[in-house]
Write a protein that binds this DNA or RNA. Sequence first.
DNA 1: GAGCACTGC
Length: 724
Amino acid sequence: MDKKQSPYKKQKYFHNQGPSTSKDFNSERSNDLYQERCNLPIYSARAKLITEIRKAQNSIVIGETGSGKTTQIPQYLMEAGVTKGKVIACTQPRRVAATTIAARVAAEMGVQLGDTVGYTVRFDDTTSSQTKLKFMTDGMLLREAILNPLLSRYGIIILDEAHERTVHTDVLFGIVKAAQRQRQVDNKNPLKVVVMSATMDVDHFSNYFSKAPVLYVQGRQHPIQLMYASKAQSDYIYAALVTIFQIHQEYPANEDILVFLTGQEEIEGVSRAVTDVAKDLPSESPGLIVCRLYAALPQAIQRKVFQTTPVGQRKVILATNIAETSITIPGIKHVIDTGRVKAKSYVPGSGVDMLKVQWLSQAQAWQRTGRAGREDSGTCWRLYTEDTFGKLPANTVPEIQRANLANVVLQLLALNVKDVLNFDFMDPPTKESLEKAIDQLHLLGAVEENKEGAQLLKLTSLGREMVAFPLDPRLSKVILAAKDFGCLEEILSIVSLLSVDSVIYAHPNKREQASQHWKKFTSSDGDHIMLLTIYRSFKAVKGNKKWCFENFIHSRNMKQAIEVRKQLRELCVKAKLPFQSCGHDTAAIRKCLVQGMFMNTAELQVDGSYLSLDNKQPVSIHPSSCLFNCKPAYALYDELVQTSKSYMRPGMALRSCARLLQTTVCEEVKQLSCNSTAMTVVTEGSWGSSCVNSNRINEDVLGSFCNQNKSYHKLVYASGILFK
DNA sequence: GAGCACTGC
């Protein structure tokens, strides 16, 4: 491509970056480590930071990722004895960050990991009674708060990477503030809060934490050249391809390229295109090595991005936003930013999760840009105009404003927050989305009115039992219901598989072949039973990797499910639930699943389509479901995902089964002024299977509704969706 | 009739 035709405008800016922390620090001697610590730019600010944090109850620390703030500030505070022997907690949104930072800090301090310094993440806890500095995932601290809302063992809580605004961090904001206040009231030892962030939107954080002082940490600077498209690109994938080859022809071969794309299919497509075009390049041009990077990809293939490129060749990495924060690739000189991201949004009205390609935020664009200057100067190519960039939202909408909040509300109630609607959120979710969550918990029988005041809530005994499980409340309910159906072993397997990423996996061009293999697992009862069959087969071959490979079963996700199951099983032991197996009696399993998922059901219509039972919206069976070619009269699903249609995934066929209805409930139903055929059936008390068929009522669903709490509210809900 | 960004407990 001729340089004069280059569609880019140039700009230059400086990106704050600290030294690389990707070296193998375990092999370094502590002397060198000490020297390295002293060379960090943050070192000169050490005394000032300690003084300021000591003075203030809350502080905000602003500094780029890699400035050294995450590893150094916790150490400074500990060395200075700011907490007087109390534990310092430092939270991270991701497990890898918590574990690697803890290892780094332990090495710098010359202590054994798990001694003075340790980490706590799910499935892995290295802390001991000696631990004074604890790195942990934000979710773990939240779990701990449920057991002890005052977080009494901690003297300082550092909430790191706060700009990422995970649901956990956002809830913790309010929880630590409340703990701080309560400790003051009780005249207990004070709690200090340090919020660390890379954002420049400091006022928002500072105001929320009662005008907390803001401390800036200087990083090291690597210049990054910023290029904007001079005019809007109609096809960002084509634009990305052109840019890859423009760089390939104009820049030295040792400069690797990182391209941000939106998803698996796109990455596979671009990967093929780059390989094809590269074949037609002149023979003297350097070779191109294409690496793909997305979460579903087996780890062995993911690791290819870390292999050193042979001299005279160039590496092109095609990645999703996994490369924005989760995986740091050394040696990137060029970043190509398509400006797009695939993101989930939740519509509380319909309960549908939407997964769609959308524009990113400015903050996200800067995050991508920064990936070009981690070790040296670099270039970022934005495939959109400067004008477009200016119109993008400054920040990504916090996750708490686009997620289903049922679990958040359950946890808040467990934390003794009675007025959930007026909880002190930094950026409150909509009232509608909170009410939808409360409604769902009501239907599950997890919450009830609190007699202390209007709109105040409290957990029922069932709700309190549900809190113990690290699951969506619907799934916790299913586990607790299993004791009534004698199928806890089977339910644990199914729920574990439902709470990890899909365990069936195939490369897009091997799907035909894969679905042939998957046929042996399918069941006319649907995907939940299919999952159980997969679990049993996996156990029968003892998790053999070759078997997984041959059957297109994702062994990493499968292993994770096994770990989840182990954890859930331990929690069931604590809850004294009876471990029973129902063998091959799928009816017990189906009835049990309905106990928690009854609000996610759809009914077959005369024209062959499906309508959801709760708000009558059109839904379809997902093409990946083993029920795709079946037409069960009723279907139950875990979630609705909107792409070209609202799809139910995964699906389960419901059949009418033994009667669950109780006479007492019938009496209450009788009192409702619902004038319909179905109501007549109920009042006559005739629940034969012929009635069920003729009135198109499914006893699985109805029984569950009526077995819930017998409150009027619920019966109205039930009648609204079931009686026609 | 056709499809799954990324975390976390």
